[in-house]
Computed example of a mutant assay.
Amino acid sequence: MSPLHYRFEQTLAWHCAPSLAGIKAADLLTWTVEGREGADLLSHYADLLSSRGIRLYVLGARRGRTLLLIFRPRRLDCWLAQPKVREMLDRAGYPVSRDTEAMLAHLRRRLQGGEFPHEIGLFLGYPPGDVEGFLRDGGRHCKLCGPWKVYDNVEEAARRFAAFHRCRDALTQRVDRGIPLSRVFPAVS
């Protein structure tokens, strides 16, 4: 494995382990794409992950940095189909009567706008009550801070945070030992 591939796998393991493992709806990753080699790397990993039931979706790019959403499509579909999540996305103008792909395209357009779309937390699997609390309080007055700011159900969030950390630690240890993601996550047929 080339040093660039190894660095990308380390970055994926650190930032996206819960979504790679399927215990979280999605994760975000910002990656610097340097010329043709960087574009080839993203294309390679989009194909490799796709063969394992994982999607690498480009949300946008600016000044050589690419914002990626990493997710298992069925997991994200199920998450976005929850009534409270759909209701909140509908209020934010998302085409909830269409498929996940249409909602992701809408999110991509929102990211290109001037104001950051904090409802992105819904795509990442953050509890709707916590997304509402963040939007209401502007990120202040949270009860717990971890992968997201918690406003509701602190105990459940703390359990999820611990599971995410265990998942990240296990995956980064494997990658650090030289085990490629292609061996960690088998191809699906």
Rank of each mutant, 00 (worst) to 15 (best):
residue 157 A to F: 08
residue 65 R to D: 08
residue 143 K to Q: 15
residue 31 W to V: 00
residue 121 G to Y: 06
residue 155 E to C: 05
residue 22 G to T: 11
residue 18 P to W: 01
residue 3 P to F: 03
residue 85 V to W: 06
residue 95 P to F: 09
residue 17 A to Y: 02
residue 140 R to L: 13
residue 41 L to T: 04
residue 27 D to A: 14
residue 8 F to E: 10
residue 135 L to C: 09
residue 70 I to W: 00
residue 21 A to N: 07
residue 45 Y to R: 04
residue 67 L to Y: 03
residue 53 G to D: 08
residue 51 S to P: 01
residue 144 L to A: 15
residue 108 R to M: 07
residue 151 Y to S: 01
residue 10 Q to V: 00
residue 70 I to Q: 00
residue 113 G to S: 13
residue 60 G to C: 04
residue 73 P to Q: 07
residue 75 R to H: 10
residue 133 G to A: 11
residue 185 F to A: 07
residue 62 R to M: 04
residue 37 E to I: 09
residue 73 P to N: 08
residue 83 P to D: 14
residue 44 H to G: 08
residue 27 D to Q: 12
residue 163 A to M: 12
residue 81 A to K: 13
residue 128 P to Q: 08
residue 85 V to G: 10
residue 65 R to M: 04
residue 47 D to N: 11
residue 177 R to Q: 12
residue 188 V to Q: 14
residue 182 S to N: 07
residue 95 P to V: 09
residue 82 Q to D: 13
residue 102 A to F: 05
residue 147 P to C: 11
residue 154 V to T: 07
residue 145 C to F: 15
residue 74 R to Q: 12
residue 166 R to T: 11
residue 176 D to M: 06
residue 41 L to S: 03
residue 99 D to C: 10
residue 91 R to F: 07
residue 4 L to A: 15
residue 71 F to Y: 15
residue 116 F to Y: 13
residue 130 D to F: 00
residue 87 E to A: 14
residue 40 D to T: 05
residue 138 G to R: 09
residue 30 T to H: 02
residue 86 R to D: 12
residue 2 S to N: 14
residue 58 V to S: 12
residue 57 Y to G: 00
residue 155 E to S: 11
residue 111 L to F: 09
residue 5 H to L: 04
residue 117 P to L: 01
residue 48 L to H: 03
residue 87 E to C: 02
residue 36 R to D: 15
residue 10 Q to M: 05
residue 93 G to T: 07
residue 172 T to R: 01
residue 145 C to Y: 13
residue 45 Y to N: 08
residue 88 M to L: 15
residue 7 R to H: 02
residue 130 D to Y: 00
residue 58 V to K: 05
residue 187 A to S: 14
residue 96 V to E: 09
residue 80 L to I: 09
residue 132 E to W: 12
residue 130 D to P: 01
residue 27 D to M: 09
residue 170 A to C: 05
residue 127 P to K: 03
residue 146 G to K: 12
residue 77 D to C: 08
residue 144 L to R: 10
residue 152 D to V: 13
residue 173 Q to T: 06
residue 187 A to Q: 12
residue 49 L to P: 00
residue 120 I to A: 09
residue 130 D to T: 07
residue 74 R to T: 03
residue 23 I to E: 09
